[in-house]
Amino acid sequence: MSSTKIFLKSSDDKTFEIDETAARASETLKNIIDGGCLDGVIPLPNVSSNILPKVIEYCKKHGGDNGSSKKIANGGVDKDKEILPDYDEEEDKREKVRVDELKKWEEEYMDFDQQVLYDLMLAANYLHIKGLLDLTVEKAASMIRGRTPDQIRENFNINSDFTPEEEEEMILIEDEWDDEWAFD
C-alpha cells in the first residue's frame, strides 16, 4: 500500500497533510479518493483549522482500520506488520495490549472542553468517521448523565426558552421524577 499524501483544506483556508491510508478512516474522504476526483487538495468547508488537526490525529491512529485487524496489517500506518495468517497464543495477548493502549490513547485524546467536543462531533458526523462519532457522542452523553437541567444548560451554553409557567411545570416534572426514583 502506497502512502500517498492527501491535502485537506480547512474552512479558514489552511492546508493540512494526511496519508491516504489514514484519510480512509473517513467514509466521506474515502468516497472522494475512490471517486477519483482528487486534484490535490480536498476542501472541507465545515471543518475549521482548530479542529482539523484533531481529526487528522484520530485518523492517523485509526487509519485504514474499520474494526478489522487484517486491514491494519495490510494498510496500517505506523503499525508493525505483525499479524500473520498463522495463529499463536501470543496473538491474544498482543491484541489485549493493543486494546489497552488504544483505550489509554483515547482517554488522553478526549481530554478537551465542550466547545471542542461540539465541533469535533460535527466534524466526525460530516466526515463520517464512525469511531470518532461514537467517542464524541458518548462523551456528550456522559456530560448529561445524572445532571439537572440547570447543570446541562450551564455545561452546554443553552438558555432556557420556557415561559415562567412552563418552567414551573418543568420543575414539577423533574421533582416528581426524582421522587419516584428515590428508592432508598
Binding site: 448529561i144 446541562i152 443553552i158 416534572i173 423533574e174
Partner: peptide, 10 residues
C-alpha cells in the same frame, strides 16, 4: 430519567 431532564433544558 436522563432524557427526561435533558428534555427540560429548552
Amino acid at each position: 430519567d436522563d432524557n427526561v431532564r435533558f428534555s427540560c433544558v429548552c
